[in-house]
């Protein structure tokens, strides 16, 4: 039995162990990697970066904690960028296990924005972020498609109150905001079918600029919408999040995670090549009899 025969019968748990060891060791060793920034991620960053103070953006957070590994970093980076630039943000969470997680992120970023900060050479003085003035968190409602459609008429139809139980009309920020017409763009962070719904029932029906932040598994399926102009930018998986962090000059878990990704991918590619060589040799051997 040669090495390739052995590889064909290798217990998969050895592969898991090897990948795990590579990930842990690369995590423990401090080093950095160079990252290219793709045009579709740059488009999202540039769009938000060129908005004026008091412009309103809508951030739809439609993922559960099970997908936070990929989507949390881009959520943190976008919210911090928006708050630093004095943009107003409306948040919704149309995924059932998302609202508490969104509330946690908003508060964490608000704490961070209290401190002075310099991003891409621009100094931003720390400031207090206020609920109802700087942001509104609408919370969760079931049936995302109907909620997205109803918000196009008036945010108050599906959300008479915000997540904290306050009527929307009582929030200073929401007084002149009725629907998507007053919103500069929607950024949809999604781990499931809600991104289809935002494209179909939101962008297609109400024609607002839409950007997507997606898990890696979904990303490739949404590029046709980029080419057709239905979405103006895509951030795909941890790579997209890392590129956004690099563009925003706000390094976080995604940039840290990408250096581990590089070596994990190398290991997987090596295993795939070895597995294929083993498969081809085994097939050739079987043909020869």
């Amino acid at each position: 039995m040669n090495i390739f025969d052995r590889l064909m019968t290798l217990d998969r748990r050895w592969v898991f162990l090897f990948v795990a060891l590579v990930c842990v060791i690369t995590y423990a060793i401090p080093f950095t990697i160079k990252l290219n920034k793709s045009p579709e991620v740059k488009a999202v960053y540039n769009f938000i970066d060129t908005l004026k103070p008091n412009d309103v953006i809508f951030v739809a957070v439609d993922y559960d904690p099970s997908s936070l590994a990929e989507l949390h970093p881009m959520f943190y980076a976008i919210v911090e960028q928006a708050f630093r630039k004095h943009l107003k943000v409306i948040f919704s969470a149309l995924s059932q296990n998302g609202p508490a997680m969104v509330d946690q992120v908003i508060k964490a970023v608000a704490d961070s924005v209290k401190q002075d900060g310099t991003y891409n050479g621009v100094f931003y003085k720390g400031r207090q972020i206020e609920d109802g003035v700087d942001y509104t968190f609408l919370g969760y409602k079931p049936y995302p498609a109907l909620i997205i459609l109803a918000m196009g008429q008036d945010f108050r139809i599906p959300f008479p109150t915000d997540y904290y139980g306050k009527p929307l009309d009582s929030l200073p920020m929401m007084r002149n905001i009725r629907n998507y017409d007053q919103v500069k763009c929607v950024v949809e962070l999604s781990s499931g079918s809600s991104s289809d719904m935002w494209i179909t029932y939101g962008q297609s029906r109400y024609n607002f600029p839409l950007a997507l932040g997606l898990t890696g598994v979904m990303s490739a399926d949404y590029y046709p919408y980029l080419n057709s102009g239905q979405v103006f930018g895509i951030m795909g998986g941890l790579l997209g999040a890392a590129q956004y962090e690099a563009l925003a000059d706000n390094p976080g878990e995604a940039l840290d995670g990408m250096r581990i990704q590089v070596y994990a991918h190398l290991v997987i590619i090596i295993f795939i090549i070895m597995g294929n060589i083993g498969f081809i040799l085994a097939r050739r051997k079987a043909r020869k009899g």
Binding site: V19, A69, G216, A220, G237, L239, G257, Q261
Partner: peptide
């Protein structure tokens, strides 16, 4: 391309737990 992104997604989950 989908498979590559999927692998990246799965590794991302593990990386986040390591972090």
């Amino acid at each position: 391309a989908s498979f590559g992104y999927t692998v990246m997604g799965r590794i991302s989950l593990f990386v986040q737990r390591i972090q």
